[in-house]
Amino acid sequence: MSRHSNKEQKNTYVFQLEAMIEDDNHAAALEQLIQRMNRVGLLDYQITSGIQLGQLIKERKANAVSTIPVPIEQHSGETRQQTALPQTSAESAVHDAFHSFRKVMSNNTLIRLIVNRGLGIKMSIPCRIININENEQLLTIYHVDEKQVYTFRMNEIEDYQE
């Protein structure tokens, strides 16, 4: 006679939320959020984006009589290249790298990032990508071993491995 557990199978639920955290800078606020999320015992979580609210935005949101949602269209790299000026090979390489990093970030994939900090200092970091700022060419990662948040410029990143 085999023994089966009478315990019922639990259902899994996923919730989306927005959290507001005040701190001195983006990295400190993000680190605070990650530490809090790790403390509450969630099975898993994914931070998909973050914004900094400026004072003018806060005032206008507070004084708004009503708000109307506006859809945001996502454009692929091909669409961008058709409508923009021709890219140099370096710009194209950076754009391709950001495209790869966005895919890794959306899948919450654990990667090993190879970073050259200069003066012969190289780092091999097991991490998850938590934010990408293409305009500033910044990549914010969560170092899974150290449980720290780091931000690197794209010119510091030599390679990554999935």
Rank of each mutant, 00 (worst) to 15 (best):
I51F: 02
I111W: 03
V115P: 11
E59F: 01
S124M: 05
E91W: 03
S100R: 15
C127P: 06
V94M: 03
H99T: 11
V65H: 15
T83G: 08
S89G: 04
R117A: 09
H143P: 05
L119C: 03
R102L: 00
L56E: 13
E31L: 09
R102F: 01
V94D: 03
R128D: 13
Q81A: 09
I47P: 07
L139Q: 12
G118D: 02
E91Q: 14
I129F: 10
G41F: 00
Q55R: 10
N108V: 07
A90H: 11
R117N: 02
R112S: 14
V144Q: 11
T88E: 06
E78K: 07
E136Q: 15
L139F: 05
I125L: 03
R117G: 03
A29P: 15
L138K: 13
M37H: 00
N63E: 14
K122I: 00
I72N: 00
H99F: 02
T140Y: 14
A90S: 11
Y150N: 09
D44F: 00
M105L: 13
K122S: 01
E136K: 15
T109V: 12
F152L: 00
I129S: 12
T109A: 08
S49A: 12
Q55P: 07
I129Y: 08
V104P: 11
L43S: 13
Q74C: 09
M37E: 06
S89P: 14
I157L: 02
A29Y: 04
I68G: 02
H143Q: 06
S92Y: 08
H99I: 04
R36T: 06
R60P: 00
L53E: 10
G50V: 05
L113I: 02
I51A: 03
I57H: 04
A62N: 12
Q32G: 08
S124L: 04
L43P: 08
Q137T: 11
V149C: 01
T48Y: 03
K122A: 00
N135R: 12
R60I: 00
P86D: 05
N133K: 15
N38M: 08
A97F: 15
H95F: 04
R128T: 15
S106E: 10
K61N: 10
S92I: 11
I125C: 02
A93L: 15
M37W: 02
I121E: 11
S66A: 08
G77D: 10
H95E: 03
I68Y: 00
Q55G: 09
L119A: 08
E78F: 03
A29I: 09
Q82P: 02
S76E: 15
G118L: 07
I121P: 05
I68E: 10
N108K: 03
G120R: 14
T151W: 12
L119W: 06
